[in-house]
């Protein structure tokens, strides 16, 4: 592999990691604070992608692109809030199996709704010209859109850091991750906090779907593909750990990118190889906590 190609594959891996982080961070945040297994997290991602196609296509232009991504993400956040208020709130003290069934039902409902509203055909939407081009790296080129994806993920990292470590809400979320019972005793409005966290998680999933929409065809079924990867990333990183989600995403993104380049026949296995190795060495994940 030439140095030019190395850089191109590296950027590809990091852009894949960026998407995995956007989706995985919401998943791990929701599990960390709410202790709920949201199988429908990928459905929120798919919803974000379909909404972005409709909004970006409808609005047009650079501003329309930006507004479409923001509006799609916010819309998914609102839908997430409604889901939390109407369904998940009733399940916090039920067994995990009940949560699984409920969120699995949500997958079917959202998939059916998307099919009815947007149709069964795959969709595509363009990005502004400055994001559709490529940047030369020696004799190779890097996709401008991949750099955009990495930039969005870095912005989300900064935003989440500011939220969690610079605001009262963030302090409460971190406390909820550490000990939700104690938080209730301290007088915090835990139901409201949980709704807020779920909205943030849904918004991140929607943002993931919205930013990726101009980079690949949007079709029914992208929900399952991404949620499997997002679960793998959260388990690798350690359940409930945002730092873990970030490191897990980078690890998986790079292993997939370089792995496909070197041994494409094993492309389906790379993510699970990483998962098996990490769980073999640290069953609680890279940044999770062992059972006490």
């Amino acid at each position: 592999m030439s140095p030019d190609t190395f850089v191109v594959v590296l950027v590809s891996g990091l852009s894949g990691a960026a998407l995995l982080f956007l989706v995985g961070s919401g998943l791990t945040l929701v599990f960390g604070a709410l202790r709920i297994i949201n199988l429908a997290h990928g459905s929120l991602y798919m919803l974000g992608a379909f909404l972005a196609v409709a909004l970006i296509g409808g609005l047009g232009g650079v501003l329309g692109f930006a507004a479409g991504i923001v509006a799609a993400s916010l819309a998914v956040g609102v839908i997430g809030g409604l889901i939390e208020l109407s369904i998940l709130r009733r399940l916090y003290h039920r067994e995990h199996l009940m949560q699984l069934v409920a969120t699995f039902a949500l997958i079917l409902i959202i998939s059916g709704a998307v099919r009815v509203i947007f149709g069964a055909n795959f969709k595509r939407v363009g990005a502004p010209d400055f994001l559709t081009g490529s940047i030369p790296v020696g004799s190779s080129t890097i996709s401008a859109y991949q750099l955009f994806l990495i930039g969005v993920a870095l912005a989300v990292v900064a935003g989440l850091y500011a939220l969690l470590y610079r605001t009262g809400l963030g302090r409460n979320i971190r406390a909820a991750v550490a000990d939700p019972e104690l938080l209730q005793l301290a007088g915090v409005n835990v139901p409201l906090l949980f709704t807020t966290v779920f909205v943030i998680g849904a918004l991140l999933a929607g943002l993931g779907g919205a930013v990726i929409a101009p980079y690949h065809a949007v079709s029914l079924g992208i929900d399952v593909d991404i949620v499997v990867q997002a679960f793998a990333v959260t388990i690798i990183g350690g359940l409930g750990s945002l730092v873990g989600a970030a490191i897990g995403s980078i690890l998986v993104g790079l292993v997939q990118s370089f792995g496909i380049y070197a041994a494409p026949k094993f492309s389906l296995a790379f993510i699970f190889i990483v998962l098996a190795v990490v769980l073999g060495v640290r069953p609680w994940g890279l940044f999770g906590e062992p059972e006490r």
Binding site: V9, S12, G16, S140, Q146
Partner: peptide
């Protein structure tokens, strides 16, 4: 690439090379 792949960038790098 797997059916339904969402990221072809590594394959594209191979083709370019």
């Amino acid at each position: 690439p797997k059916l339904g792949a969402t990221d072809y960038s590594s394959y594209i790098s191979k083709i370019q090379a």
